[in-house]
Write a protein that binds this DNA or RNA. Structure first.
Ligand SMILES: [Zn+2]
Ligand SMILES: [Zn+2]
Ligand SMILES: [Zn+2]
Ligand SMILES: [Zn+2]
Lengths: 172, 172
DNA sequence: CCCCGGGATGATATGGTGTAACGCCGCAGC
DNA sequence: GCTGCGGCGTTACACCATATCATCCCGGGG
């Protein structure tokens, strides 16, 4: 195994960044060096990462970086569908499947849901059309015109649930 | 009409507070004067209200109030299912139907979804079982054990959508 | 009566998150 | 060259949330 919880390997990471840059160009936008650096940090993190944590890491390469530096980059990356914000955590994650979603018919502003483990912090992105449809239906039934939907589920991931059952006392 | 966007009338408000107090007692908790004041402020607001806005209003009655004062009260009210937090807004709203939900089989920790108008700020709470079921199914299908679910839809309410269509330039 | 424990509140301090506003620079395009 | 615009640096500020310790009250035991 190359990296268990350390994120993707360096080579795969650079390849993903190149793909992201190409996608931006195709949409008439530009993945600048700064934005690329921020995206790299987000993708390299195994868990959602706060803006100020990104800022700390970013300062290694850019000593003058300040909050607006990273927030502007994150806004851009969100518009490009490369990064999502996790509202419950005030944190950011790389999109799990920017090109996989193209394959299943979704653009760069695709519906998504998060499964957040309250025990280990792991956050998984899923893309369930039934959920998206149910939410859109319920909203329209109330005379509402949905634009953007946030679905975040807090609970236990499979690994943590198994561990809790095996050794309940080991948590604390 | 008693109050269009000014929230419920004083009498209805006090009645709701009395019902809330009775519900708390039934669950072995106590709606103290402070908590009752905070709940009253939340219920009186036609829109989601931030903790510091509540604090400002609360100081009229309690000059010494500080952030922990209002946050502790809000935590209690959330546990009692009398108030919800809107993650996207970092704000709080009174639960739309604490006793209506009992009627349809939900306890004081009931599933709910928010429809947030990005134009006028109006936030409606709905309780759609199909949405709740779809989210729970999707989570379990991924081997995840859901505990608490957040569903928040940003878009346009019926009134704002109609207005935008009638006079597109009137927004700005 | 005194002591004690727990719940609620008061009070102070600090940390975390996000944005406004201004200015500079480089690069088209006229 | 001037201008418009996008990207970025820089400063300052506003808003959101929690940690920590002290105090008060009130019911239960000794
Ligand atoms: Zn995604
Ligand atoms: Zn876990
Ligand atoms: Zn509710
Ligand atoms: Zn509206």
């Amino acid at each position: 195994m190359a990296g268990t919880t350390t994120g993707p390997g360096e080579a795969a990471l650079e390849a993903a960044l190149d793909r992201a840059a190409a996608g931006c160009l195709a949409r008439g936008a530009q993945l600048t060096e700064l934005r690329r650096q921020v995206l790299k940090l987000v993708l390299a993190s195994p868990h959602p990462v706060g803006a100020y944590a990104l800022l700390d890491q970013l300062r290694a390469a850019r000593p003058g970086a300040a909050p607006p530096t990273v927030y502007r980059a994150l806004d851009f990356l969100q518009e490009q569908g490369l990064v999502h914000r996790v509202e419950r955590l005030n944190a950011f994650v790389g999109c799990a499947g920017p090109e996989a979603h193209h394959h299943c018919g979704h653009g760069h502003d695709h519906p998504h849901q998060f499964l957040i483990c309250g025990s280990c912090g792991a956050t998984a992105e899923i893309c369930d059309d039934r959920v998206a449809a149910a939410v859109a239906d319920a909203a329209r039934a109330a005379g509402f015109f949905p634009v953007r939907t946030t679905v975040e589920v807090e609970g236990r991931c499979a690994a943590c649930a198994a561990m809790t059952q095996a050794a309940p006392a080991a948590v604390r």
